[in-house]
Amino acid sequence: MSTLIFRTTAPYLTSLMILFSLFVLLRGHNDPGGGFIGGLIAASAFAIYGIACGVPAARRALYFHPMAISGFGLLLAGLSGVVSLFLEVPFLTGIWTSINVLGISVDISTVLGFDTGVYLVVVGSITSIALALEERGHP
């Protein structure tokens, strides 16, 4: 799998796929997409990077351990549900607010926090499995 063409294109392909996964994550609220499918796209990006450049390089690129990313996602998703405790509404109720970024008002919500959590759980766990399998494949 270490042909010159693949190794040269893999970093570009990976960065494009991660960018696309973020796009899919963010459009997921009203259109097809969302945290789960976005996470799968990002995880396959890291898997490709691992195949092309080796697992150690992929782990360095991730910086955090995949399981830690997964844990952070779960924490984020769980805490997004708890925010509604302070507004007298049930667990996991979506709470919306808008902030002003450079003159444009952007709607943010706990729903986005939950979806980002799902995204990170999927990225972390699938990447963890993929990298472990790739490590076993090349003793």
Partner: peptide, 24 residues
């Protein structure tokens, strides 16, 4: 929903959050 009603989800929410922290 009063905060006291949250005891019905706390037995699930607390272990999930703690499990996530332990994973990190």
């Amino acid at each position: 929903t009063s905060a006291a009603d949250w005891v019905v989800v706390a037995p699930v929410a607390i272990p999930i959050v703690a499990g996530a922290l332990l994973m990190m």
